[in-house]
Simulated scan of single mutants.
Amino acid sequence: MQTTLTSKGQMTLPSAARTRLGLEAGDRLLVTVVDDDTIILKRPSPKPVKALRGLLARPRRALTVEEMDAGVAAHLKEKHGSRSAK
Rank of each mutant, 00 (worst) to 15 (best):
M1G: 10
M1L: 15
Q2M: 09
Q2V: 13
T3P: 04
T6L: 03
T6H: 04
S7P: 05
S7T: 11
K8T: 03
K8S: 00
K8H: 03
G9V: 06
G9T: 01
G9K: 00
Q10G: 06
M11E: 11
T12E: 14
T12H: 11
P14D: 04
S15A: 15
S15H: 13
A16L: 14
A16N: 11
A16D: 15
A16F: 10
A17M: 15
T19R: 06
T19Q: 09
R20H: 14
L21N: 08
L21A: 10
G22M: 00
G22A: 00
G22N: 00
G22S: 05
L23D: 00
E24V: 15
E24F: 14
A25Q: 09
A25N: 08
G26E: 06
R28C: 09
L29R: 01
L29C: 06
L29A: 03
L30D: 04
V31Q: 06
V31S: 07
T32W: 06
V34S: 14
D36H: 10
D36K: 08
T38N: 07
T38K: 09
I39R: 03
I39V: 05
I39D: 00
I40V: 14
L41M: 07
L41S: 06
L41A: 03
K42A: 14
R43M: 08
R43V: 07
R43S: 07
P44A: 02
P44L: 00
S45A: 14
S45T: 13
S45D: 10
K47G: 11
K47S: 12
K47E: 15
P48L: 07
V49H: 05
V49A: 09
V49S: 04
K50W: 12
K50Y: 11
A51W: 07
A51T: 06
L55M: 12
L56G: 10
R58I: 03
P59Q: 11
P59F: 01
P59A: 09
R60V: 15
R60Y: 08
R61G: 00
R61L: 02
R61W: 00
A62V: 07
A62I: 05
L63K: 06
V65W: 11
V65K: 10
M68A: 15
M68V: 15
D69L: 09
G71I: 02
G71C: 02
G71R: 03
G71L: 01
A73S: 13
A74T: 06
H75I: 14
E78T: 03
K79T: 13
H80E: 12
G81Q: 02
R83Y: 08
S84Y: 08
S84F: 09
A85V: 12
A85G: 11
A85R: 13
K86A: 14
K86S: 14
